[in-house]
Design a protein around this nucleic acid. Structure first.
Lengths: 197, 197
DNA sequence: AAATACCGCTAACACGTGTTAGTTGATTAT
DNA sequence: ATAATCAACTAACACGTGTTAGCGGTATTT
């Protein structure tokens, strides 16, 4: 009876959650079955339930761990004493790096949150709405100080956040430019598009 | 025995495909059941099969009708005798309007194509890859003529296309700016981000 | 009016799903 | 060494899924 492999400091549950992220990204939450997940982990489906409560619990864990990281970063950036454009760029670079280095989780949180069940669903939608408002507020501050073009701030936020999810295509492409180049290109275009010339 | 209502020139199949688009957008292809669809159409699930071959056929129809519209527009724009920036802007505006006025279909084609079965899946992915290459080629031409900043063209394409899918959020938001304003804001930011100052 | 194609219904199937119960071997603590 | 906890297994269930068969009524054509 071979147990799930664990390095020290990585619980078996964390292994499962991590494999779930990969699977949910590849097939979508609904299409990924617990038997698929079990196979990926190297175990029978029923055995997973010694470590987790339900399939949806896996989705909660993924969605909220990502959401919390972003909210935490927002706290941090808002508190800094730098220009608004600098704040926007910092948030942008954070998003880009999250999407590059925590691809699976971030992607799943972005695309599959619809399948959350309802105390969690509303909660998650709320957190998102608040996050976007705070992002928009930074842009609006930038508009008032004339750093940023006169544009509709919520629209700008929506462009930023969705543009970043395009990094998915970068991950899948065979001829990738480097992560650093990708980051610089995205910043050039997006910050460039906002900045008042 | 009440039949599916049809205006003249709209076949019952088209009614089904259209309702399917809405449903697939709301719940995702895999989570949307034929019984759900039947209810939306006002009929029993089995009756749908008098008009369609399978659930996946609905997805084919949606995905390829959208893909064909974009490829057709690309043909048109490539042939025009205008600056590269103008071509980019035209393509962009077309994408934006498609996402505004054919929301359900375009959204489904964008997010749910993974669930296509394999002769269609590869076909669709191919068409996508080709479309993006042609888009990138326009941008590269713009870079050579110095209309466009020196950036990685595939990255620029990926930003454009994904930014536009953010219009989903606009559709869901309660306090919408007008469609025209949305279009102008997006063009300002995205074309502005590309153009050489 | 008769014939034919259309289109809805009910019933049912085979299968894949998430999950639970109960058990047994492996690991850890006393 | 013994006890206790952990984590794997097998078996099974209840249910939702896409889809088919076959029937009967309703439009449409002749």
């Amino acid at each position: 009876m071979a147990r799930i492999k664990t390095d020290k400091n990585i619980s078996r549950k964390e292994v499962i959650v991590s494999k779930a992220a990969t699977l949910f990204r590849e097939k979508g939450f609904k299409a990924a079955s617990m038997r698929d997940l079990a196979e990926a982990v190297g175990v029978e489906a029923a055995s997973l339930y010694n470590h987790i409560k339900s399939k949806t619990e896996l989705l909660h864990e993924l969605c909220f761990s990502v959401a919390n990281r972003f909210l935490h970063k927002m706290d941090e950036v808002e508190a800094e004493n730098i220009s608004n454009i600098a704040k926007i760029e910092k948030l942008l670079r954070f998003h880009i790096n999250e999407m590059i280095y925590h691809y699976e989780e971030v992607y799943v949180s972005d695309r599959e949150w619809k399948h959350l069940a309802d105390p969690y669903l509303s909660n998650f939608q709320n957190q998102r709405r608040i996050y976007r408002k705070r992002f928009a507020a930074v842009i609006e501050a930038g508009i008032r100080t004339k750093e940023v073009k006169k544009i509709d701030a919520p629209t700008a936020v929506l462009i930023m956040l969705h543009a970043i999810s395009g990094i998915e295509s970068w991950h899948r492409s065979t001829q990738k430019i480097s992560a650093a180049e990708l980051e610089e290109n995205m910043v050039t275009i997006l910050v460039g598009g906002l900045t008042n010339p």
